[in-house]
Amino acid sequence: MTYDPSRPAGRLLLTPQDKDAPARVRRLRRLGLGERSEPALDAFADRLAQVAAAPYSMVNFIDEQRQFFAGLHTPDGGAGGGRLAAAAAGNELRYMARDHGFCPHVVVRRKALVLEDVCDYPRFAGNPVVDEFGVRSYLGAPLLDRSGIALGTICVVDVEPRPWGRAGLETIKAMAAELAGQLVRREEDHGI
């Protein structure tokens, strides 16, 4: 856990300590991931949103300081949908501080996370994305490479509570495994 003294008094940030971050950053750089958006990852995010029937989806790579959404889907390509879509339309959502959102928890835990209503969980209800963007529901899974490093996540979010259920959990895990397999093939094709 980290405490940020620049936050209002008493606001404890519950972003987990990430001891694997240096190794992840080296691996991401070697794979050429996490620094620019990629049409194939945007297309994957589009398909993920469709499969999950969610308004927002992301393919997220995380370094020591921030998150980068290399794949991003928003309603109407960012043309609608409130504060979250407006931020995405201006590419503000391609980068996010590491202490914003829920993906850093997924990466550190190396397990999927289902939050049907983030406000039901005190640990997550105070996350900045809840107030800043109106995020109310989250479903994410880690992208594990063949060495076992969690490179990042795939996730879907909604501005309304969502009953993701077991079907949602199984879907996000299967989609994460699919994309992880694509990343392994990319690595093999490029001799990395």
Score class of each variant (00 low, 15 high):
Cys103Gly: 05
Ala97Trp: 06
Met96Ile: 15
Tyr95Phe: 13
Arg94His: 11
Leu113Ala: 11
Asp120Leu: 11
Asp99Tyr: 10
Leu93Met: 13
Asn91Asp: 14
Ala89Trp: 05
His105Arg: 07
Glu116Ala: 13
Pro104Trp: 06
Ala97Leu: 14
Lys111Gln: 15
Glu116Tyr: 13
His100Ile: 05
Ala87Thr: 00
Gly90Thr: 01
Asp99Ile: 00
Arg94Leu: 11
Ala97Pro: 08
Tyr95Ser: 08
Arg109Ile: 03
Met96Gly: 15
Cys119Ile: 06
Asn91Lys: 08
Gly101Pro: 04
Tyr95Arg: 14
Phe102Ala: 00
Glu92Ser: 09
Arg94Ser: 08
Asn91Gln: 09
Glu92Trp: 12
Cys103Glu: 04
Ala86Arg: 08
Phe102Glu: 04
His100Arg: 14
His100Phe: 15
Ala89Ser: 09
Glu116Gly: 15
Leu113Arg: 15
Asp120Ala: 12
Ala87Trp: 05
His100Glu: 14
Val106Asn: 08
Arg94Glu: 03
Leu113Ile: 09
Ala88Leu: 00
Pro104Met: 10
Arg109Cys: 03
Glu116Thr: 11
His100Cys: 15
Asn91Ser: 12
Val106Ser: 03
Asp120Gly: 08
Cys103Ile: 01
Asp120Ile: 02
Gly90Met: 01
Cys103Arg: 10
His100Gly: 12
Leu93Phe: 11
Leu113Trp: 14
Arg98Cys: 09
Val107Gln: 05
Cys103Met: 06
Ala87Val: 00
Asp117Arg: 10
Asp117Phe: 13
Leu93Lys: 01
Val114Gly: 06
Val114Thr: 09
Tyr95Asn: 10
Glu92Asn: 10
Ala87Leu: 14
Val108Tyr: 08
Ala88Gln: 02
Gly90Glu: 02
Leu93Cys: 03
Asp120Arg: 11
Ala112Arg: 13
Ala89Pro: 04
Glu92Leu: 14
Asp117Leu: 12
Arg109Pro: 04
Ala88His: 03
Val108Asn: 05
Arg110Ala: 01
Val106Lys: 11
Tyr95His: 15
His105Val: 02
Gly90His: 03
Arg98Met: 08
Met96His: 11
His100Ser: 14
Cys119Val: 09
Val107Tyr: 07
Val108Leu: 08
Asp99Pro: 03
Met96Ser: 15
His100Trp: 15
Cys103Trp: 08
His105Gly: 01
Ala86Gly: 06
Ala89Asn: 07
Val108Arg: 06
Arg94Thr: 06
Cys119Arg: 15
Ala112Asp: 10
Val107Trp: 09
